[in-house]
Amino acid sequence: MTPVSIAFVAVFFLLLLVAVKPFGLYMANVMEGRPIWPLRVGARFEAFIYRLCGIDPDAQMGWKRYAIALLIFNTLGVIFVYALQRAQAWLPLNPQQFTNVSADSSFNTAVSFVTNTNWQGYSGESTMSYLTQMAGLAVQNFLSAASGIVVAIALIRGFARHSASTIGNVWTDLTRSTLYILLPLALLLALLLVGQGVVQNFSGYKDVSTIETLSYQNPKVDAGGNPIKDAAGNPVTEPATTQKQTLPMGPIASQESIKELGTNGGGFLNANSAHPYENPTALSNFLELFAILLIPMGLTYTFGRMVGDTRQGWAVFAAMTILFLPLVGLGTYSEQQGNPLIGKLGVDQTASALQPGGNMEGKESRFGIGASALFASVTTVTSCGAVNTMHDSLTPLGGFVPLFQMQLGEVVFGGVGTGLYSMLIFAIVGVFIAGLMIGRTPEYLGKKIEAFEIKMSSIAILVMPFIVLAGTAVAVSVAAGKAGVANPGAHGFSEILYAFSSAGNNNGSAFGGLSANTPFYNIALGLTMWFGRFWPIVAVLAIAGSLAAKKRVPVTAGTMLTYGPTFVILLIGTVLLVGALTFVPALALGPIVEHLTLWGA
């Protein structure tokens, strides 16, 4: 790692650290409905929304009602986004006159955006009308983020309440998190991004003539969009030339801001945050990185505040930080090392005042190694999935880092809401294991952890590895799954494993190299995204309901402290053991064998 990379990470993390307490406190006040000035200003509009939708904001819900209301809300979202894509050719705000999206791609995209995954099998600038981008995809960026926040808040209420049969009102939670947290931040960030040069208009695309004729090799694809390969398995290409370049336009900044804040990650443009119209400068890159982690980090303080002991929130924050920073270091170090095969050809890969050195394949020169590797880490410890570098071009160990981070369950800060509630599930399992070791009934935050909570935690934790590994196994076994692989061997396996890890964890980033816009992958990944999102949510809400009904156990000399170093180590150990033991065999077949092959050559 270069001193510049280290300084960049240090400044970035310190600025976030400064924001955690005030922003976490603000979110706690919003979700508890305290009369702070934004809620007083918005009270009339909020009341209007409730009247319009026939909502009684004072009605409280049990966990089942809360879960089913959230499920219905999200299912209607899937149907709406699906219908919008299937009808976009006949609807306004379609200056490029895009045709309707295919049925299987519409299904995949609808599930993808509602589940906060934002996996994109399509290319935004050549597929989606402005109406679909705004009314379908951007709206779901807000609502899926709000859905994650409300589940985390419901679980926190489970700890905070006692002898209660309810965990809140899902409609007021969704409304407040959208209205007072996501919307103002998204508006502010969109304006800052426009200031940096991110495009925001409704113009049609602009055609410009290039100075020279561009010659390139165009990959041939069959009618299904799959790459055609020769007998050796290499992609078949044909020579092509062009003198025209089409510049995409559209309401990009407004979508870009919530894409990062809501840890959604779905780019308006295919190149995502690597595209200069989404992420033009070093400062815009910094703002986007900051936005991705702001809410997940702040929620740890919100948690501590709402349970009445901020030390509990800081303990969770500490565990996340200890997991986060070494992985950032490994990713950056690996990319800075470069490719030994290129080094053997005499190419200088050392960093200097004139070059960033290391592995710059797939990276933007305006970001360099440090900001690219940090982005790859930040986007995969959270459920964001936005990319400013092509993950397929990372070194084997550099690619291992994002893959492993997703497979840990995205609990290191994680997605908005999802990261916190997933980490709290690991905390429940951790205190259970500790209870077994010392022979006491496990407790967490004054609530006894009993058989029901452990059953639900097991479901919440095991759904993801099951669907990811089973999906990968099916994809590498059937012809339709193997057809989309452009790089046979260990790297091709990594591409498929990455796709299912990304879908199952609702991340949405792609390793590239895999042609996933096929009926097989659209349906398989669509199912993976749905079950990876909502089955753990149901189990988490069941835990929230169960905990809320319990009495608070007084703290005694035998109570295990859940804010000290011992608990932090226990939590980290639980996360690593579950994540590592589940996925190491699969990782060994992909990035690890690739690393050994590369460096042993």
Binding site: I68, L71, V78, R86, A103, W535, S546
Partner: peptide, 30 residues
Amino acid sequence: MDLIFILMIVALYAATHWLTWALSRLGGVE
């Protein structure tokens, strides 16, 4: 084709609704 995918979305909802019901039968609170 659209009907098939809409039915698939409804089936995904139904499967998750069923899970909610099944988990509530395991214990905890209603």
